[in-house]
Design a protein around this nucleic acid. Structure first.
Length: 114
DNA sequence: AAGGTGACAGTTT
DNA sequence: TAAACTGCCACCT
């Protein structure tokens, strides 16, 4: 890599994720668009992978895929942790899917009015 | 410096 | 309708 526009695209991702209110969830795509890289949804997911090494905790459990599925649960300490963390926040998860996903969905581009 | 990779998304078989 | 393929951009080795 020769040059990067930003030192850390990930940090931006982390910040946005931390802004997600408890009990709400956001999608990789929405976060990516919010950061100006609509097609970097995959990167957002990869960022979450790295979030575990961050000093400041990142509520990765609040980030799900477009279908509301907990696709990243496998990357937690243990797979069930993701659903558990969400449950503690009042988010019901059934079979790796967020209940009332559309209702609990939190879109930064809308909620933050950017 | 170049290539491979990934917790997705959208489109096409 | 469901399954498979390609595109995509930034990080890492």
């Amino acid at each position: 890599m020769v040059a990067r526009r930003k030192d850390s695209f990930f940090e931006d991702v982390f910040e946005v994720v931390r802004l997600i209110p408890p009990g709400r969830v956001a999608t990789y795509g929405d976060i990516a668009r919010f950061l100006g890289a609509a097609s970097s949804s995959r990167m957002v997911g990869f960022a979450m992978n790295r979030s575990h090494f961050e000093a400041i905790p990142v509520p990765a459990q609040r980030v799900v895929n477009r279908a509301g599925l907990l696709t990243g649960k496998a990357h937690f300490a243990y797979p069930e942790q993701m659903a558990e963390l969400l449950a503690l926040e009042g988010v019901m998860v059934l079979d790796d899917a967020v209940i009332d996903f559309e209702k609990r969905r939190w879109d930064p581009t809308k909620e933050l009015n950017f």
